[in-house]
Design a binder for these strands. Structure first.
Length: 679
RNA sequence: GGCGGCGUAGCUCAGUUGGUUAGAGCAGCGGAAUCAUAAUCCGCGUGUCAGGGGUUCGAGUCCCUUCGCCGCUACCA
């Protein structure tokens, strides 16, 4: 038989800067299913996670709320834990990177990395905000692009011309924190020379064992072909994180201490359970599996193995990488209401629905998965309610008096066939190909319902002489149901419990699927899974949209300061300065998409009469050209024409928003006519 | 532009190391049943497997190429 494995499983540490949403849940559910499966198989398996709590972003968020960082992250910690438990995600330990265990382990890693000669010091020039008293990461600086002179561009690159540069080169830079002009300061940073581990990482990533093939290819194409850049691992004070013991005033960069949090959280668990952390992290017999999203591939497949290797820990057995979630084919969006928080979902729907739906979509590939809301409803109603639960619901009440038959009846080989399928289903779970596992399980349900149909228990029940036959038929139906519930237990733990409540036997082990249950009582059937009403899904979407709107509505107290912070107020001007800008109402009379352009639409505007302007606007991602024709917009009519790649733009259409799909055109209230000036 | 991925029935997707008339679920149409949460059962699918070329006795499956979509990254990979 298969021997007992020792398996350590982690999911990525969620950043303690906001609530969990349905996109995050893809990973935690995927991982939870895998862990529950391994536990049912009798393996020794623990599921480790923690909040990722350090870094500038959290420091800033805490400041904005006027609380200490510790208060801020502990609030989020509680929120995250309740979100996860609401979805039946069962961590063995959910820690925090802001823990004494993590500090101790970071020190241990650090000492080993220094001893290996991988650390070097270098002075770098960086922008400093004297008012906020902090160095500024690129995303906290805006200014005018040194290449194309576009205004309010972020630190390291320009979305207008695509140019890249250093934040120090920005013309007229501003700190997004205080709005003041940053000064250039020199600071000493510590770097890890990852290049020294290049040969090792070539071998480890390309061995074919630890990574999905497309990931190995990606690394080969992007990073392995040239020397690795040094990794800037320290941040000068002030920084919310751990101060580096032998470098006072310097802190480990959040991405240094975050993965070590996996080990630290394991250590916490070990302390609680009288175990030794080395038995998990320095034991070749222990498998280590990381589940992550594709966005953090780089850290987990290059830096992290390098760190583990250098510090003498075991390397991951496998890094399982998944894609992103889209909703109805599009990126999750706050304005569309598809950016659904875990807590909002739970107000409207059962967690099992989402667990099951994700399971039907997940494979071992890195592909994005789509949450199609119509399909979501029909899958739950058709598969779970119509096929699976229906087996119990249509047979249990006939045998409440007698219970199950004492010997398992002849069933035409259905149970034996489904038992045999158990191996294939198990190997699909093992390989993270849940969609295949579910397909196989549903095929069993598709085989079971016709059995009930052919044997007509509802007719047998009317004839007292056929009581034994009735009991047999229901014994088969309930056993087929139980078998399916066992196979689905990693995905639907609540269904397994309901199965126990009905048949009196706890579902704990995969092997239970191989032997039918006989001679035991049957309890009254209770509803197990309610059908989904589409309106409930819609209500969830509506509430999510409302949540998002609240932050931009007239409810001043709940408006976030993010937008203003991202683009601080400009210098004061006089009324005369303003009068120089001639804003006019204009009607869009033609709008065409330029195939080669990623952002631009070509608009033809009418200012009334024969006055027309051709204007290129960077709104392609946000508006369909057809939808614009006929509407009124506000245009800067006296802006100097500008030659662009696809023609000359004779003006500018006024819009707000950060860019891409988040662009909002301004339009006048009803009654305005083209040509009117805006005063 | 580079790299990676994808492109199979109206929708969501399976198609194992190339091998008989390419599959499932949902939706749709027709019928049956009425035990069950209007759940279930039976029947109904001629899709240039994105286009073209090649390798092969044989390709959705391998190679080349074109087109389209997605992601990452950019006058470096």
């Amino acid at each position: 038989m298969n021997k007992t494995r020792q398996i350590l499983v982690t999911a990525a540490l969620p950043y303690a800067n906001g609530p969990i949403h349905i996109g995050h849940l893809v990973e935690y559910i995927q991982t939870d299913i895998w862990v529950r499966f391994q536990k049912m198989r009798g393996h020794r398996c623990i599921y480790i996670c923690a909040d990722d709590t350090h870094g500038t972003a959290i420091m800033i968020s805490a400041r904005q709320q006027g609380v200490t960082e510790e208060e801020f992250i502990s609030h989020i910690h509680r929120e995250h834990q309740s979100d996860f438990s609401g979805f039946d995600i069962e961590f063995d330990n959910y820690g925090s990177t802001h823990s004494e265990e993590n500090f101790a382990l970071c020190s241990e890693f650090w000492t080993a990395i220094e001893k290996a000669g991988l650390v070097k010091e270098q002075d770098i020039e960086q922008l400093y905000d004297p008012e906020a008293k902090t160095f500024l990461a690129d995303r906290f600086v805006t200014g005018t692009c040194p290449k194309c002179k576009s205004e309010s561009q972020y630190g390291d690159n320009c979305d207008k011309c695509g140019g890249t540069y250093s934040a120090r080169d920005l013309v007229n830079p501003r700190s997004t924190l205080s709005g003041t002009k940053p000064e250039i300061r020199t600071a000493r940073h510590l770097f890890i020379e990852l290049e020294q581990l290049h040969t090792f990482l070539d071998e480890w990533t390309q061995s074919g064992e630890h990574l999905q093939p497309e990931i190995a290819n990606y690394l080969r194409g992007h990073f392995l072909g040239e020397p690795f850049r040094d990794w800037d691992i320290s941040r000068p004070a002030p920084y919310f994180g751990f101060e580096i013991p032998d470098n006072p005033g310097h802190y480990w960069y959040v991405w240094f201490d975050a993965p070590i949090g996996y080990v630290a959280s394991t250590l916490q668990w070990c302390k609680l359970h009288g175990e030794n952390v080395d038995d998990w992290w320095r034991n070749k017999a222990c498998e280590i599996h990381h589940f992550i999203g594709k966005d953090i591939t780089y850290f987990h497949t290059l830096f992290w193995p390098g760190m583990l290797k250098t510090a003498g820990f075991c390397l991951p057995t496998k890094v399982h990488i998944h894609g992103f979630l889209t909703v109805d084919g599009e990126k999750m969006s706050k304005s569309r209401g598809t950016f659904v928080r875990a807590a909002t979902y739970l107000k409207h729907l059962e967690p099992g629905y989402l667990r099951y739906y994700y399971a039907t979509k997940l494979s071992a590939k890195v592909d994005d998965i789509d949450l199609n809301l119509d399909e979501f409803v029909s899958k739950i109603n058709a598969d779970l309610v119509g096929k699976v639960v229906n087996l119990a619901s249509r047979s249990a009440k006939f045998v409440q008096q007698q219970g199950l038959s004492d010997t398992y009846p002849e069933d035409g080989g259905l149970f034996a066939h489904a038992a045999k399928e158990g191996d294939l289903i198990a190997s699909a779970y093992e390989l993270c190909d849940y969609s295949q596992a579910i397909r196989r399980i549903m095929a069993l349900a598709d085989g079971a319902n016709p059995y009930v149909e052919q044997n007509r228990p509802w007719e047998l029940s009317k004839d007292p002489s056929k009581l034994g036959q009735l009991q047999d038929v229901c014994t088969v139906a309930l056993n087929l149901f139980r078998q399916i519930a066992i196979y689905l237990a990693p995905v639907l733990p609540r269904l397994a419990i309901q199965c126990e409540q009905l048949l009196g036997e706890p579902v704990t082990d995969w092997k239970q699927s191989q032997t039918p249950l006989t001679g035991s009582p049957v309890n009254p059937f209770k509803h197990m899974i309610h059908r989904i009403d589409k309106p409930k899904v819609q209500a969830m979407i509506d509430e999510s949209r409302d949540d998002a709107l609240e932050t931009t509505s007239d409810n001043v107290s709940s408006d976030s300061g993010d937008a203003l912070a991202a683009e601080p107020l400009a210098e004061e001007i006089t009324i005369d300065d303003f009068a120089k800008v001639d804003l006019r109402v204009a009607r869009v009379i033609a709008a065409e998409s330029i195939p080669e352009a990623r952002k631009l639409l070509k608009l033809t505007l009418s200012l009334g009469g024969a006055q027309q302007r051709t204007v290129f606007a960077g709104i392609k991602a946000a508006y369909q050209p057809e939808a614009l024709v006929g509407r009124l917009v506000i245009c800067v009519a006296n802006l100097a024409p500008r030659k662009m790649k696809f023609g000359t733009s004779e003006g500018m259409v006024i819009a707000s928003g950060p860019g891409n799909s988040e662009v909002f055109l301004l339009s006048p209230d009803e009654g305005a006519v083209p040509g009117q000036r805006v005063h």
